[in-house]
Design a protein around this nucleic acid. Structure first.
Length: 242
DNA sequence: GCGACAG
DNA sequence: ATCTTGTCGC
């Protein structure tokens, strides 16, 4: 297993600077989302977790990607990237906040990422183009989104046993699934990102949750990006007003 | 117009 | 996301 030094995450010169511009980018890229592929078979190849942590006071963002062996869930490779926050948090525009740092971290990898698991949504999104779909279109990689909250969507409670699922609904349209990954514990919300079917996305999510509610991939990436943020924060100028 | 809203 | 102590449970 190899780890890298944090890579510098640069904000592209043409990155949208306001909300209307960002929405226009989503409306433009949405057409490139591929939804007619099944995606990699669960338990084969690699599965990569992605997560990002912030210090908005110091304007620092840290992203982490962790490549796991899909069969054993052992860590194959890790990478991080640190940079300036690229966009404020706006519901529906999360991708513009996270993607530059995530791309920088992904670019450090020697291993094939395989299936990329994002913390958030794919096509379950106000304009049908959430973080997971956006990252998938930009990289060409198969992606799914596993979120902790239902966002603006509705769902009927899935059965109590792990593995139970219910449709995540945007009105009457199924945009994802509320999937129970642990007995009697709040479900996670799975949606397709790019080049993966919903059934397969749920199957992968279950394989990634043998012990905890959240996928092992995102748990690993979460711990790593927080550690990277702590380091970056430690050797940074104090927040304004201090 | 008001409230809700992935992370 | 982040701010934060103790506490219930396996």
């Amino acid at each position: 297993m190899t780890t890298h030094r944090p890579a510098p995450a640069h904000i592209p010169a043409d990155w949208p600077v306001d909300e209307p511009a960002a929405r226009a980018v989503q409306d433009e890229l949405r057409a490139r989302t591929v939804l007619d592929e099944t995606g990699p078979a669960p338990g084969t190849g690699h599965v990569t977790g992605v997560d990002v942590a912030y210090d908005d006071e110091r304007d620092i963002v840290a992203a982490a990607v962790v490549v796991l062996d899909a069969a054993t869930l052992d860590v194959v490779e890790e990478a991080t990237a640190v940079g300036r926050v690229a966009f404020p948090y706006v519901p529906g525009l999360l991708a513009f906040r996270e993607i530059p740092a995530v791309l920088a971290a992904l670019g450090q990898l020697a291993a094939d990422p395989g299936l990329v698991v994002c913390d958030g949504y794919g096509i379950a999104h106000p304009r049908g183009f959430g973080l997971a779909s956006h990252l998938g279109v930009l990289t060409g990689l198969p992606t799914i989104g596993v979120a902790k909250n239902p966002f603006t969507f509705t769902y009927e409670a899935p059965g109590a046993p792990r593995g139970s699922a219910a449709s995540l609904l945007d009105g009457a349209r199924e945009v994802g699934r509320a999937l129970r990954t642990r007995d009697d514990v709040k479900p996670v919300f799975v949606s397709v990102g790019h080049r993966v079917s919903l059934d397969n996305a749920c199957a992968h999510t279950l394989r990634l949750t043998p012990r905890y509610r959240l996928p092992e991939s995102t748990r690993r990436a979460d711990a790593l990006c927080r550690a990277a943020l702590r380091e970056a924060t430690a050797s940074a100028p104090p927040p304004p007003g201090t």
